[in-house]
């Protein structure tokens, strides 16, 4: 891999970009930067507090009241923000723990490899809902430990998707041709240098879209924590409105629409990344 020839400025992107490092390619950098920006905002800013207005009351026999729907946008939005924020925090765990699991899974010792494989498979193939409740009960049963609902959500969601991410990392590492490892040995590079300068730079571009998909998937699982753990996320907000007003059409439909507003652009970004990587591979 060589850097871009000096004549090609980054702004005039497409042609001849084959050999540039992936982070100098705007087609990949932009989605990644947007995600990172979202990450930063969500991680640092908490949702504003405040209760929703109770003065808008819809007619009893109206199946769908537009006025009422508008009045509940604010609390649902706050809930969505909380959900997204928790997802993003959970995903930092996913990114780190996933790599650890992937390395354990590739370990030379069977004593490490097999248990890691079992744990990954076990967590992957059991419902996250059960894991939420199990962990919540476990925490409650242990004296001296107290975790809030949001913290439980972040931990369980992060670990759950770490098992998915580990497989993505593994596939990414395996996608680096054997010849690259052999060349690194032939050049007598240290294991650390081999990983940081040879393997990871080649694996990362292939792994990014998959990780992006899992981020979207995690976002879709996060609302479960509302009714189960009481995390004031989007679904919790919708259920609360239902409890307060006995109206259930608007809050859930709006929750669905609001959710799509976040997940569709996110999925679109991931797909752009995917297309970019697929293009570079050919």
């Amino acid at each position: 891999m060589t850097a871009a020839p000096p004549s090609t400025s980054i702004s005039e992107a497409p042609a001849g970009g084959r050999h540039r490092r992936w982070y100098r390619d705007p087609g990949r950098l932009v989605p990644v930067l947007l995600v990172l920006l979202g990450f930063a905002v969500l991680a640092s800013v908490e949702a504003p507090r405040g209760r929703f207005r109770t003065d808008v009351i819809a007619g009893r026999d109206e199946a769908f009241s537009f006025e009422f729907a508008v009045s509940i946008i604010a609390p649902l939005g706050r809930g969505l923000y909380t959900t997204a924020r928790a997802t993003v925090l959970a995903f930092t765990i996913t990114l780190v723990l996933g790599l650890v699991l992937a390395l354990l899974r590739r370990s030379g010792s069977r004593l490490v490899r097999w248990p890691a494989a079992f744990v990954i498979e076990f967590i992957r193939s059991t419902p996250i809902l059960v894991q939420f409740i199990f962990f919540q009960q476990l925490v409650r049963a242990i004296d001296g430990v107290s975790l809030g609902a949001v913290q439980i959500l972040i931990l369980v969601l992060g670990v759950h998707y770490a098992t998915y991410a580990s497989e993505a990392y593994r596939a990414g590492i395996d996608s680096v041709p054997k010849g690259q490892w052999e060349a690194a040995i032939a050049l007598n590079l240290s294991p650390l240098t081999t990983w940081t300068r040879i393997v990871i730079p080649q694996a990362v571009p292939n792994v990014l879209p998959t990780l992006g998909n899992y981020l979207v998937a995690a976002l879709k699982d996060a609302p479960i924590a509302g009714p189960v753990l009481g995390v004031p996320g989007i679904l919790f907000a919708a259920t609360a409105i239902r409890g307060d007003t006995f109206r259930q059409v608007e809050p859930f439909l709006l929750a669905g629409a609001g959710f799509l507003l976040v997940s569709l652009p996110a999925a679109w970004l991931v797909r752009r990344l995917e297309a970019r990587v697929a293009y570079e591979r050919t």
Partner: peptide, 18 residues
């Protein structure tokens, strides 16, 4: 795009009324 839990709640609570 939609979260399956939200879709489930829409199916269970909103659709029957609508």
């Amino acid at each position: 795009g939609i979260s399956s839990i939200i879709l489930l709640f829409i199916m269970a609570y909103a659709i029957p009324i609508l």
